[in-house]
Design a protein around this nucleic acid. Structure first.
Lengths: 250, 250
DNA sequence: TTCGATTTGTTCGTATGTATT
DNA sequence: TAATACATACGAACAAATCGA
């Protein structure tokens, strides 16, 4: 049952197969975040292909921000701690158009079971245990985002309130460093809604004021969902910035 | 003043120089939209580089959706008429998550002069003549988006109301086919706001209802701005869909 | 239908340049 | 300085898709 022969990618080009095998090793945790992969020459030997074929496979993984190359040093598993990836899933900017690092405050933490909708979005069974928590993001002292985040218990066995509260970096960096889960993709759906009373008071808005709602599902390798998140954003003083046509070199 | 030697890219790799020269020819209109470029072998001869170097230059232009390759046929200037690019700048989906082609209705058309803010965003001088028009988009008979669009007069010399009203495809396809202007990139800033009375009536909402405001600046080659657009979106029944981490192959 | 010419796609190999340690 | 690693550039051969004779 070698995926090279049987898997979903029957008659694929060699470099796609190499890419797939690299993804498998990555998923299996052979190289953890921040760690260097073997050199291209070594990988070429291991997979018994030319170095150019390995490069082409890595090219795509770099384009997908799963790997990072450094000339003279090596190829590394992308880390969510670094400037390059830190703002990859964070789109809010002030009037000046610059992204700033938000401060984060954990509000609640709890356990529950997945209802039908949640189960479908998380790819788990109905009634499966989940963890949820609410998080408040502030930009320049001003409360801006109220997040309600839900994850499958199974993927984050020992995740609890103090772990979340005392984390060092972003939530996705925690997923990565502590649970080996790499968020590499997300789908967001944005809409304008009226603010309910509680969110209003947290965000410093009048009840009924317009807010931006963002429903996000975050995925790891192979499109496996790992998190569902509802963000409610006060867009009085900040915008959601979206660059179209910038997912390319330089 | 050959950019290879002097231009902004002094000591660049060869393939970057080839890419830059291709962009120049594109801007100069040597190949118009939908047209085929010379074969890679011919381009390699013309630029006196290897075919691999030409391929690497074209690779990036394809990643930027400026060119499209078809095995066995050739390399073509991307056209905004096709499914692949049609929805590139259109992000609204219904509850099912599927994009549908909107119907478009021109509401107003007029001429004005650029104020300070507009001049800055369009990269023109204050007081320069501009054209503006409002456009209503409907999805499944329902009015969803009210666009207020402003462009520099200079780039669209003979653009008038009937031309806009009787266009065959999208607005960007018109820019491309009639004025040779390729919109390849845009920056959008989204926020939630309350709806003013007029927009409310056009969009079938109560005055003061929350709407999604999208401020867009659209760019052509070399980051030259060509259009400023304010979209007001009724997100009662439609979402703005944003895929993060999908700007890559397959 | 078949065949051949053309064009892009894949794979290999090699040499050299540049950054890091 | 030397060794290592990625980056660039070249060339060759064959595969796969397309199109017209």
């Amino acid at each position: 049952m070698d995926p090279v022969v049987s898997g979903g990618l029957g008659q694929s080009p060699l470099y796609k197969i190499v890419k797939h095998r690299l993804l498998q090793r990555l998923t299996a945790g052979e190289w953890s975040s921040g760690e260097a992969l073997p050199s291209e020459a070594r990988l070429a030997k291991r997979f018994e292909v030319s170095i150019g074929t390995v490069r082409k496979a890595i090219d795509e993984l770099v384009a997908e921000k799963i790997l990072v190359r450094h000339q003279g040093k090596g190829t590394f598993v992308a880390v969510h701690n670094e400037d390059r990836t830190l703002y990859y899933f964070f789109h809010l900017v002030g009037p000046d158009g610059l992204k700033r690092f938000p401060t984060s405050e954990l509000l609640d933490f709890g356990r529950a079971r997945a209802d039908a909708g949640l189960a479908e979005r998380l790819g788990i069974s109905r009634g499966a245990p989940v963890l949820w928590f609410r998080n408040l993001l502030k930009l320049q002292e001003r409360p801006v985002v109220l997040d309600h985040i839900t994850v499958p218990q199974a993927l984050f066995p020992d995740l609890d309130e103090p772990t979340l509260r005392h984390r060092e970096s972003t939530i996705y960096a925690l997923y990565q460093s502590r649970y080996g889960i790499n968020v590499i993709r997300a789908q967001e759906r944005l809409r304008a809604r009226s603010c309910d009373g509680e969110a209003a008071s947290v965000l410093g808005l009048a009840p009924g004021a317009p807010i931006l709602e963002i429903h996000r599902v975050a995925y790891t390798f192979n499109d496996v969902p790992v998190e569902v998140r509802l963000s409610r954003v006060n867009t009085e003083h900040h915008d959601y910035l979206n660059d179209l046509g910038k997912g390319f070199p330089r």
